[in-house]
Amino acid sequence: MTTNSVTSSATGPNKGVSRQAIFVGILLAVGLIAPFAVYPVFLMKGLCFALFAAAFNLLLGYVGLLSFGHAMFFGWSAYITAHAAKEWGLTPEIAVLLGTFCAAGMGAVVGWLAIRRQGIYFAMITLALAQLMYFVALQAPFTHGEDGIQGVPRGHLFGVIDLSDTLNMYYFVFGVFALALFFLYRVVNSPFGQVLKAIRDNEPRAISLGYQVDRYKLIAFIISAALSGTAGSVKSLVFQLASLTDVHWHASGEVVLMTLLGGVGTIFGPTAGAYLVVTIQNYFATLGSWVTIIQGVIFVICVLAFRAGIVGVLRPFLKKRGIEA
């Protein structure tokens, strides 16, 4: 009798689950056939940023923490993966895992320092530490400063599948993305996720119920950092390059923009936001610095007209149909 009650507060649960399955199935299918219709490198770039934004969204959307330094996880993992693949000749999956673990480690340290503060102070501490790591990246010899690590070999996945083939590379990126998004979905909809949402909604109350909120925040921070790292690692293989752009604070700002445009606290919002921003950057690139202005205008419109972001606006509509977006 209790089984049907948890999954969804929306409509009839069984119907809801199957519609959800169809919805996710369609998205997967779109992801699988997309490279035959759209330029794959563009798609991969979008997926990398989508994963980055989704990881960032775990903190902003489900814990209520605005980190302004996530580029350090994204960019540093790119360096680590690039270095591991190029200099040590590691296979891509190991190199990506290494990048992810390093990001998790950095996340543990940065998170431990930052979560003692809230709001703007939290954002400032993360920004300060990210700037510190930016200058380390600028000075450290192995990052090659302004040049970055170039010509990173994509290598052979598990030593067999040749990733220099664009389609192979695409499906690798897509697979990583889909797994990571599922993992994030699971985290958000877990006993742990319930506590996170409670902390986001009312931290003092969560404390008064006996939750040591700092531990929950720290774990969420580490998960977010780790997956941001995964995104950066994969990106360095896609473009065969790890550069200062990805550790720069611009990248930290961009991920905030993507998450807010797409819909903070939604599952697919960051993906939508990431593709929107990447599209603007790619297809309006000829407009030069106007791109920033266009982004700014879109952001202002978004904040004024639909605050919940693209997916946030669609969400009530989908929810009525038993789909959680």
């Binding site: 948890v6 742990f192 939750y211 531990r215």
Partner: peptide, 10 residues
């Protein structure tokens, strides 16, 4: 299980 982020909330 409040730290179990890998478990479903069902």
């Amino acid at each position: 299980t409040s730290f179990h982020f890998w478990k479903s909330d069902t």
